[in-house]
Simulated assay, not measured.
Amino acid sequence: MPVPELNVVAPVQDGTAGVRRLIRTGIVIDASCDVSPDFLADPDVAVIPIPIRIGQATYVDQHNPEATSRYMRENANGEGAQGQSAPLDAEQMRAFFMERFALDYDSVYCLTITASRSPIHDASSQGSAMALNSIRDMRQAADIRRPFQFRVIDTKNMFAGSGIPAMALRDMLLQHMQPKDIRDSLFRIIDSTYTYYVPDDLRYARTRSRGRGDRSINLISAMLGGALDIKPIIRGYHGDTHPVSKCRGRAEAWGRLFAFAAGRIAHGLHTPHLIVSYAGPLQDVRAIPQFAGLRSACEGAGVSLHVLQMSITGMMNIGPGGLTLAFAGPAHGETP
């Protein structure tokens, strides 16, 4: 089935009564954002690449399945504790935005990983501001008189959590919602998106998280986790993360989280998407008994359940075997 393009119709601005024109709208996400394959296949979606260096090897995170497979194959199924990401700077963002969107689009939404954990949002904001004057000059030279808008939006979440507002935005555009309504609905979804993280190796996750300014996993927890196979469940919300539960082993942690998410679906979600991303073979996720209950809850409520390979950036930061689960819904208690 062909993927629909994200085009919305709006009144013409030249005063011609009764005439309507087609506005082409693009969506930009950074590569750490976990979204479905059909979302990525949309011709109006662009991915900001994130180069990653581990030793002498360089990987480009851009949601390319072959690059992801290579990264997992060469790094113990996703291990990259010493890896360093090198996100595009403002000048590189400016060039990326101009090349991709200057003449073919009238409106662009750029959704990024939370600004509290990554410089990508700031670089995108600076890059888009630098690009705007040049884009307007290019459009004027090409006799394109339509206004051009570029919005950079902080999702206040990471990985699966950044994917929820991105996929909700695409739904809104396909429904031809008006820009003001999109803005209000999108920020409501961002402000109600919860991400739950289950790192599989606490020592690894602590090493990586401290580099991002995240203190969710302290040294004592890391030592106990290694000795007792304790798996924390960490909640991400509004740019902050903190542990909410501890479980004995992966099966208990995942099972409890899947059952908890199924219960939240019963209370209603703000957008019909639930994303699970995993740094490992996806059959591991489906093998947990409570996953069947989560799948049934989604089917009964008309919610799309997306089980995805985690981005290279997510794998490097959470570690092999790490899992994230995200949805947007009403406020709720912290403990799954």
Score class of each variant (00 low, 15 high):
residue 8 V to Y: 15
residue 11 P to Q: 13
residue 11 P to F: 09
residue 13 Q to A: 15
residue 13 Q to H: 14
residue 14 D to T: 15
residue 15 G to V: 10
residue 15 G to N: 14
residue 15 G to E: 13
residue 17 A to P: 13
residue 18 G to H: 07
residue 19 V to P: 04
residue 20 R to H: 08
residue 28 V to C: 13
residue 28 V to P: 07
residue 29 I to R: 07
residue 29 I to S: 10
residue 29 I to L: 10
residue 35 V to G: 13
residue 39 F to I: 06
residue 41 A to K: 13
residue 41 A to I: 06
residue 42 D to R: 11
residue 47 V to S: 12
residue 49 P to F: 07
residue 51 P to H: 04
residue 53 R to S: 11
residue 55 G to W: 00
residue 56 Q to P: 00
residue 59 Y to Q: 07
residue 66 E to V: 02
residue 73 R to I: 00
residue 76 A to W: 04
residue 77 N to M: 15
residue 77 N to T: 07
residue 77 N to G: 09
residue 83 G to K: 01
residue 84 Q to I: 10
residue 85 S to F: 00
residue 87 P to A: 05
residue 92 Q to R: 10
residue 96 F to T: 03
residue 98 M to C: 13
residue 102 A to M: 09
residue 103 L to A: 04
residue 104 D to I: 04
residue 105 Y to M: 12
residue 107 S to Q: 14
residue 111 L to S: 00
residue 111 L to T: 01
residue 112 T to S: 12
residue 113 I to F: 05
residue 116 S to K: 15
residue 116 S to V: 00
residue 123 A to K: 08
residue 124 S to M: 15
residue 125 S to C: 13
residue 128 S to Q: 08
residue 129 A to W: 00
residue 132 L to V: 09
residue 133 N to A: 15
residue 134 S to A: 14
residue 135 I to A: 03
residue 139 R to I: 06
residue 142 A to Y: 01
residue 142 A to K: 02
residue 146 R to A: 14
residue 148 F to A: 08
residue 157 N to D: 05
residue 160 A to G: 02
residue 161 G to N: 03
residue 165 P to Q: 12
residue 165 P to N: 09
residue 167 M to D: 06
residue 167 M to P: 04
residue 168 A to S: 15
residue 169 L to E: 08
residue 169 L to F: 05
residue 169 L to Y: 07
residue 172 M to R: 05
residue 172 M to T: 01
residue 173 L to F: 08
residue 173 L to A: 10
residue 173 L to W: 06
residue 174 L to P: 02
residue 178 Q to T: 10
residue 180 K to M: 11
residue 181 D to Q: 15
residue 186 L to C: 09
residue 188 R to Y: 07
residue 189 I to D: 04
residue 191 D to F: 05
residue 192 S to N: 15
residue 198 V to K: 04
residue 200 D to K: 11
residue 202 L to P: 07
residue 206 R to A: 11
residue 206 R to D: 04
residue 207 T to K: 10
residue 210 R to M: 12
residue 210 R to L: 14
residue 210 R to E: 12
residue 213 G to T: 01
residue 214 D to G: 05
residue 214 D to L: 07
residue 219 L to H: 12
residue 221 S to P: 00
residue 223 M to N: 04
residue 224 L to Y: 01
residue 231 K to H: 02
residue 231 K to Q: 00
residue 234 I to W: 04
residue 236 G to D: 10
residue 239 G to N: 10
residue 239 G to A: 11
residue 239 G to R: 06
residue 243 P to Q: 09
residue 252 E to R: 13
residue 253 A to Q: 00
residue 260 F to R: 03
residue 261 A to M: 11
residue 261 A to P: 01
residue 262 A to L: 10
residue 265 I to W: 05
residue 267 H to I: 03
residue 268 G to A: 11
residue 270 H to F: 14
residue 271 T to E: 12
residue 271 T to P: 03
residue 272 P to E: 08
residue 275 I to F: 13
residue 277 S to T: 13
residue 278 Y to Q: 10
residue 283 Q to E: 15
residue 284 D to G: 07
residue 284 D to Q: 14
residue 286 R to T: 15
residue 290 Q to R: 06
residue 291 F to E: 00
residue 292 A to Y: 01
residue 292 A to N: 05
residue 297 A to Q: 05
residue 305 L to V: 08
residue 307 V to P: 08
residue 308 L to E: 05
residue 309 Q to P: 00
residue 311 S to R: 02
residue 312 I to R: 07
residue 313 T to K: 02
residue 320 P to N: 11
residue 324 T to N: 06
residue 324 T to D: 11
residue 325 L to P: 07
residue 326 A to T: 05
residue 330 P to Y: 01
residue 332 H to P: 02
residue 336 P to S: 13
residue 336 P to Q: 14
